[in-house]
Measured scan of single mutants.
Amino acid sequence: MKVIFLKDVKGKGKKGEIKNVADGYARNFLFKQGLAIEATPANLKALE
């Protein structure tokens, strides 16, 4: 799953980066902790 990092995550990505991560890791950790959001077209446009 492609995500946009909202904060730096050690070993995974830095704020503003778009990367592929495992679906479960994204849903169960990154999204719940507020560290990333899904890289949807609307979210990508908002990032610009």
Rank of each mutant, 00 (worst) to 15 (best):
K7W: 08
L47W: 14
N20W: 15
L6R: 02
L35F: 12
G24W: 15
I37R: 05
A39H: 05
A42W: 03
K32W: 08
F29K: 09
F5E: 00
K32R: 11
R27E: 11
A36F: 01
A42V: 09
K12N: 09
N20T: 15
K2H: 09
A39L: 05
K32N: 12
K45D: 10
A26Q: 12
A26H: 06
L44T: 06
E48K: 10
G16Y: 08
A22E: 13
E48L: 14
G11K: 05
V9Y: 04
A26I: 09
K15A: 13
A36T: 00
A26S: 06
D8F: 06
K45Q: 13
D23E: 15
N43T: 06
I18R: 02
V9W: 04
F31R: 02
V3Q: 00
K12I: 15
Y25S: 05
K10H: 13
I18Q: 04
K10R: 13
N20K: 14
K2Q: 12
L30I: 02
K2S: 09
I37T: 06
A46M: 14
N43G: 06
K12L: 15
A36V: 06
N28M: 11
G34L: 08
E48D: 12
F29G: 05
E38Q: 09
E38F: 04
K19E: 04
N20S: 14
G34I: 02
K14R: 13
T40Q: 03
K10S: 11
K10E: 14
T40Y: 04
G16K: 02
E17S: 05
A46T: 12
K7H: 13
K19H: 10
L30S: 00
I18G: 01
D23V: 14
P41M: 11
A42Y: 06
M1T: 14
A22P: 15
G13Q: 02
K14I: 12
P41N: 09
F31I: 14
K10P: 15
L44M: 11
A36N: 00
A22S: 15
I37E: 05
K14L: 13
V21L: 05
N20F: 15
Q33T: 10
G24A: 14
I18S: 03
K15R: 13
L35V: 05
Y25M: 07
E17Y: 02
R27G: 04
L6F: 03
N43Q: 06
K10L: 13
V21H: 01
F29D: 10
A39G: 05
K19N: 05
K14Y: 12
F31E: 07
E38P: 12
K15W: 04
A39D: 02
L47S: 07
K10V: 13
K2V: 12
N28G: 10
V21R: 00
R27T: 10
K2Y: 15
L44G: 04
